[in-house]
């Protein structure tokens, strides 16, 4: 090495690197720069979500109606409860993380181990909660009909309460034609996950029940979805209805506008990816703390750096929480 390094003659002087104007180590500074650029990535996601909300301001789904499931309590439908729990969880794991950093600054190995363990538990619970959220979102609840134009028709009774398409669909004995290559598009196969009820069953059930109305994506001036009269409902369904949607994927979702599910998957997915990376980093420093690597190094700065990343994940969640669930 010695031979390849050109000596500048300024070693130990200001221009030789002796001066540390920002009084932070290289690793910490670079982590801050990374977090800055990562925050712009999340900004990109969230502003494009904002663009779509502005563009579809009068037909965007209402988040309170979508995210209202609580694990272990199947009968109640309360918006906000579960996501509030997730937010508290992440803030609390941030607190244990910053306590771990503080204990590290005072070189208390046992305390760091304990607090890192609590932080890890918080992170794992959060990611499991997100898995629950995703699975209920993908599975769906009430089901809906998609129109030819890609709009979603949902069903309500005369009081305005949502009705599941599975409750009113009638048995239908007509045979379903299997898609063959010589009929229609040759490059399209059979749908991989057929829906539980067919379009004809929903149609028969809808026509037989006079108290079921159609609720469209468009909203009135108070931000509530418009419910059509029975005649309009019938006309809308028969003229435009084209397929049954249950749950959500990247192409169709029963909650409303198609892009709603896409943004949900991408933004919470990207955040969940960050949480997963954070859990791996936390596990690494947890392990290193137990075996005493940082005691030998006489510095717990690595815990501090992982802590910075973990707080950033919390910071992003604060914004996702506001713009996805509250606004």
């Amino acid at each position: 090495m010695e031979a390849t390094v050109v000596k500048t003659g300024t070693e130990g002087k200001t221009w030789g690197g002796a001066n540390k104007p920002l009084k932070a180590s290289y690793g910490k500074l670079m982590l801050w720069i990374f977090l800055f650029s990562d925050s712009l990535t999340f900004t990109g996601f969230l502003v494009s979500y904002g663009l779509t909300r502005f563009r579809f301001a009068d037909s965007w789904p209402i988040a309170d109606e979508v995210f209202n499931h609580v694990p272990f309590f199947h009968s109640i439908e309360e918006p906000m409860i579960f996501v509030a729990f997730m937010t508290f969880l992440l803030i609390f794991s941030s607190v244990t993380m910053v306590l771990a950093v503080d204990a590290g600054a005072r070189m208390k190995q046992k305390m760091v181990t304990l607090y890192l363990f609590l932080t890890l538990c918080g992170g794992l619970t959060f990611i499991s909660s997100q898995a629950f959220e995703w699975s209920t979102f993908i599975k769906g609840g009430y089901g809906a009909i998609e129109t030819k134009g890609g709009n979603i028709l949902q069903f309500v009774d005369t009081e305005g309460e949502r009705v599941s398409i599975h409750d009113f669909a009638l048995a239908d004995n007509s045979e379903r034609e299997v898609h063959a290559k010589n009929k229609g598009l040759w490059y399209v196969g059979e749908p991989s996950t057929p829906t539980e009820v067919s379009f004809n069953q929903v149609k028969e059930g809808f026509l037989a029940n006079d108290n079921i109305l159609v609720r469209v994506q468009d909203k009135d001036e108070y931000g509530e979805h418009i419910i059509l009269s029975r005649e309009d409902s019938k006309a809308k369904f028969l003229e435009e209805g084209s397929l049954v949607v249950e749950g959500a994927n990247l192409i169709h979702n029963e909650y409303g506008h198609r892009l709603f599910a896409n943004y949900f998957f991408f933004i919470t997915g990207f955040h969940g990816f960050h949480v997963s990376i954070g859990i791996m980093l936390l596990f690494t420093v947890f392990f290193n703390t137990i075996v005493g690597t940082y005691e030998k190094r006489k510095s717990y700065e690595m815990v501090e750096k992982v802590g910075l990343y973990w707080h950033f994940v919390d910071l992003v969640w604060v914004f996702v929480f506001t713009f996805f669930y509250l606004v």
């Binding site: 009084k23 500074l29 993380m97 707080h311 929480f321």
Partner: peptide, 22 residues
């Protein structure tokens, strides 16, 4: 949300303790 973001950055991420220009 901005209030929360401020306190997370300033106190949990120790921005309050960093040099002014960092």
């Amino acid at each position: 949300t901005i209030v929360k973001a401020y306190y997370i950055t300033w106190d949990f991420m120790h921005m309050r303790d960093e040099v002014k220009f960092l």
